[in-house]
Amino acid sequence: MYFFERQIVNQIRNSSGLYFRYIDDIFVTINWPVRHLLKEVDRWNKFDENINLSANIGSSVNFLDLSIEHRDGQLFTTVYQKPSYEPYYLPFNSIHPLHMKKNIPFAMLLRAIRYCSTFQSYLNEREKLRMALLLNKYPNKIIDEQFNNVLSKFGIDEPLTLTNYNRSRQKIIDSSIKEKQLVNYEKSIFVHFTYCSSMKTFPIKFHALWDKYFDKSPINEVIPILGTRNVDNLQRRLIHTKSKI
């Protein structure tokens, strides 16, 4: 695909356009007549018999989970959900660590702020998200807590309003993304344990015991990394086991 698209990218950029691709989804903005663009798409399809591009041309387009619309010289964006979308998230009553569940409302609201270019579209998306989380048994207290954590993480100490939305949103967009720290596998030990409600305090106790017994030992240079796995219960077996016909 890389060699296939080089010609297309150069052609788009030479015409002052934009070209983005994620796997097999391509997004292009360019000031060409529709007829000319369709002609070029047909020509691109002849580059390789194994690749077939289909064009969706207009003033609005859906790219991955983002909806983009061009109105009077301005771009408006919001969250896009496919027709097959259903509001299913990790149920709050599932046997998973609490931090995994808390991360869902946090990440989803952060996406809503980044994607929604107007305050009204943000409000609509936030309420749809709240309803979906409530359907998945998330307590209102957890939802509100994580929604507030999104703002506090970026130093925003006031609720989002029509007046401050654009300014606060831009602050979030401009914030640098924390780089993922690389794991030194030569000095790391991975410990996986089966998570259940009685094991909530296990990570804290494990690290306390590690520091107690290995604090002055050469092994203390090794960093323990704890991970969880789900309980192998009947529900998981029914989901993952295919029936034999």
Rank of each mutant, 00 (worst) to 15 (best):
P33G: 06
R21V: 00
E49S: 15
Q146K: 14
T118L: 04
R169S: 01
F63S: 00
A132V: 00
E179G: 08
I51S: 01
L182M: 10
E86C: 02
G227S: 15
L109P: 01
K171Y: 04
V222T: 05
Q181Y: 05
K46Y: 01
G73D: 06
I223H: 12
Y22V: 06
F147M: 05
E69L: 07
K46C: 00
Y185M: 06
Q74N: 15
V41C: 11
K216A: 02
L110T: 05
F193R: 01
F119Y: 15
I142M: 13
H192Y: 14
S198W: 12
Q11L: 15
P203H: 09
T161C: 00
E179N: 12
F27H: 02
L90G: 05
V79A: 10
A208L: 05
N140G: 15
N93R: 03
L160A: 03
K101A: 01
K82W: 10
F106R: 03
R13Q: 13
E69N: 10
K187N: 11
S16C: 12
D72R: 14
H36V: 13
L151A: 07
Y195P: 14
T194L: 03
R126M: 09
R114G: 02
Y2I: 07
W44A: 01
V183D: 10
P91H: 04
I104C: 09
L160T: 02
L38S: 03
V231H: 13
Q120V: 09
E145W: 14
E127Y: 15
W32D: 03
I12H: 07
F4N: 08
I172L: 12
H96Q: 13
P91A: 01
I12M: 05
I172D: 02
N50Q: 11
S67H: 15
V191E: 05
R43Y: 11
Y19C: 02
I143D: 05
A208W: 05
D215N: 13
V28W: 04
K180Y: 08
V61S: 07
R167T: 10
L151R: 06
R229E: 14
H70E: 13
F20T: 12
R43I: 07
H240V: 06
V9K: 12
Q7I: 05
N140I: 13
T77I: 04
C116A: 10
Y213F: 15
L151M: 08
T163L: 03
N148A: 10
H192C: 09
V191H: 08
F27L: 14
D48P: 02
P159K: 02
